[in-house]
Design a protein around this nucleic acid. Structure first.
Lengths: 155, 155
DNA sequence: CACCAATCGTTTGACATCTAACTTTTAGAT
DNA sequence: ATCTAAAAGTTAGATGTCAAACGATTGGTG
């Protein structure tokens, strides 16, 4: 007795979707001098105009080391400033400059246009459900990470 | 007059979800000596035991250059063989070796376990809907890529 | 005060992915 | 037959991401 044909694992579908949609998005952003991580970092900063790096990393879902990398480049490019929080000198507070604000405005047009095209023909309700289910997957993966700490046996 | 509060752009939620779930998955696979791209390539080869590189790349959603990179490493590791198709010598046919088969079996346990934990508490119906909506997003992004060919104005 | 552990961020070195340019091979047109 | 264009892979160089180790700062405890 044989079960129903195996469906594609959801992790693979997710990964493939982000690879492919991400390529298209990067192409759209590069036409205004931007990139995916840059756009999402700017977006996080607009939502929270004076944020610590830890907060930004959590918002965009990348590791601190990766964020440092991007912030260093963006600061060198004059898009933002980093200064220590006088109240807690471990924390680095990040703020957009006028130049960063302008970059945000430029990318926003490209991003909105891309988002509209990406959702073409898909009801808002479906997108909302998608967002909810993705959130649940993220919650589960956070649990997995916590319970898997240090179980690696290789290398 | 002000519209409803902006929802998080679906592209950002997607990207964040794949970053975070992918980290957990990589951790699970590394404990049996595997990695995400390796696993998905093996999976594609199991579904289509003698495939061209072009087919594999399309199945897993990466570019040909990226696939070349992984296949070179996996071939050096004895997991697969590459040989030219006598009927069309441009094509390289890829096949799993016994060693590759064994690697697949090892990773499968880790992958199934991860998949089960990831879906914990989420109805199958929701996962099916997720898969469908992701497919529609991929279709749309394919259309965007076609119509955007060469519209880049920067650099 | 002095130590110790935790927190925030950076650095380093590895891997993954992409685009653009290139090689080899095939198919089509003349 | 030869030329040209397209297709399949590879290579080179750039960017993005991570984990692990480190540095600086703080808070807690003796």
């Amino acid at each position: 007795m044989q079960g129903p044909p195996e469906k594609r694992p959801i992790g693979m579908v997710l990964w493939k979707t982000v690879n492919e949609t991400g390529r298209a998005f990067d192409l759209a952003l590069s036409s205004v001098g931007g990139s995916r991580p840059m756009w999402f970092i700017l977006l996080a900063l607009k939502a929270d105009p004076v944020a610590s790096q830890r907060e930004i990393a959590a918002t965009v879902g990348i590791q601190g080391a990766t964020l440092t990398h991007h912030l260093t480049a963006m600061e060198a490019d004059g898009l933002l400033t980093r200064r220590r929080d006088p109240a807690n000198r471990r924390v680095h507070l990040v703020e957009l400059t006028d130049r960063g604000e302008a970059a945000f405005q430029r990318m926003r047009d490209a991003a909105l246009d891309y988002d509209r095209k990406l959702r073409q023909g898909i009801p808002d309700e479906d997108i909302d459900r998608l967002r909810d289910t993705l959130d649940r997957l993220r919650e589960n993966s956070a649990s997995i990470m916590k319970s898997t700490r240090g179980h690696g046996t290789h290398t």
